[in-house]
Every structure is written in structure tokens, then in C-alpha cells.
Amino acid sequence: MDVSASGHAAALWAGLHVFLLLVLSLLVVRGRQKHKVALGDGGVPELAQAVRAFGNASEYVPTGLGVLAVLAVVGAPAIAIHGVGLVLFAGRLIHAVGLSRSGGASVPRAIGMICTWLAYVFGGVILLFYAIP
């Protein structure tokens, strides 16, 4: 196992998730400026959706990044880290797009959550595999 390759793989997905969070944050700031809202969503549906898209990503991404970091530390294969990172990133991106287009239930939001949960399950199983001596 090449721990260096594992670390590079985790770094790639961590960096992409950081930029996803940054973009979602900028969309909230832009919406607040546009609607002259200092705090919260001001009752503006478009802004509420942007706030929730950022909030939802902020709730799920840290655990996913923790999984990726620990996978790298234990020397999991880079391909496994890429698999978890890709599915998590795709899920968070699809969910954010779905939420930004509709405040209600939508196919992209459902797909995004399923991908996120799959990344969690896949990552969790691999972590448990490495935890058993």
C-alpha cells in the first residue's frame, strides 16, 4: 500500500469539497446582498434554498472528509479513497443543484442523498475492515 498515494487521493477530494463549500457560501452571500438581507434568509425562498444548500453540505461534508483522512492514515488503497471521494462529491454537488432549483422534494436531491449515504456506507465498511487486526 502506498500511503503517499492515499494521502494525495484524500487531498484531492478534500480540496474539491472545500471549493464546493466556498461556492455554496458565495451563493448565500450573493443572495443576501441581492435581497439586502443581513442575517438568515429574510423569508426569500431563493435565499432560503441557498442557505440550506450550504448548510446541508456543511452538515455532511466534514464527516466525509474525516472518513477520507482516516482512510489515508490507515493506508487504504488510493482507488478506495477516490471511490468514496467521488461518490461523496457527486452526491453533494447533485444535492446542492437540486436544492438550489427547488425547495421541495426533487430527483436531484434524492440522488444526492443516496450518493452521500453510499459514500458513508462504503467508507465506513472500509474503515471497519482496517480496524480489525
Rank of each mutant, 00 (worst) to 15 (best):
V29Y: 03
G43T: 11
F54K: 11
Y120C: 11
F54P: 00
L16H: 00
V87K: 06
A105Q: 13
V70R: 12
I126D: 00
A78D: 07
G103S: 05
A50Y: 02
F122T: 14
S25F: 08
A90V: 15
Q49V: 04
G91R: 02
P77W: 07
L71F: 01
V121W: 08
A69E: 07
A10Y: 03
I81P: 00
L39A: 12
H82D: 12
V51R: 11
A69D: 03
L27R: 15
A90R: 07
G104I: 08
G42L: 06
E59G: 02
A119T: 08
L68I: 06
A38K: 13
V23W: 11
A11F: 04
A53N: 10
D41L: 08
V87Q: 04
V97W: 12
G75P: 08
A38D: 13
G123M: 05
V70G: 09
V84D: 01
V28E: 07
Y120L: 15
G91F: 04
M113P: 00
C115F: 14
V44T: 09
V18G: 12
W117L: 15
L65E: 11
L21I: 14
V84K: 01
G124F: 08
P77S: 13
P45Y: 02
L71C: 02
G64P: 05
G55A: 06
A10E: 04
A110D: 10
G55T: 02
G112S: 10
G103C: 07
V67L: 14
G55W: 00
Q33S: 08
A10F: 01
M113F: 13
G75R: 08
K36S: 13
H95M: 09
A96K: 02
I94L: 12
L16T: 04
P77L: 09
A78H: 04
A76M: 06
G83Q: 06
I111V: 15
A96F: 03
R30V: 12
V121G: 02
H35Y: 14
G75D: 04
L21Q: 14
L99C: 08
S25W: 00
E59R: 06
F89T: 11
A110T: 15
F89C: 01
N56F: 07
A90W: 01
L26A: 14
E59V: 10
G75F: 07
A57R: 07
I79Y: 12
G85S: 07
W117P: 00
A72V: 04
G15V: 00
G103I: 06
S25V: 06
A105Y: 15
G83T: 13
R32Y: 01
W117S: 05
R109W: 06
P108S: 10
L47D: 02
F89M: 09
A69Q: 11
L68T: 05
P77C: 09
G91K: 01
Y60W: 10
A131S: 14
A80Q: 14
G40I: 07
S25H: 00
I132K: 10
K34Q: 14
V87T: 15
G75T: 11
A14V: 15
A9G: 01
A131R: 09
G64M: 08
A9K: 03
L65G: 05
A96Q: 01
R52G: 04
S25P: 00
G31D: 05
S4D: 12
L22V: 15
G103D: 05
V73S: 04
G15W: 03
I126S: 00
L128S: 10
A14D: 05
G123D: 12
F89D: 01
V121L: 15
Y130D: 00
G83S: 12
V107F: 13
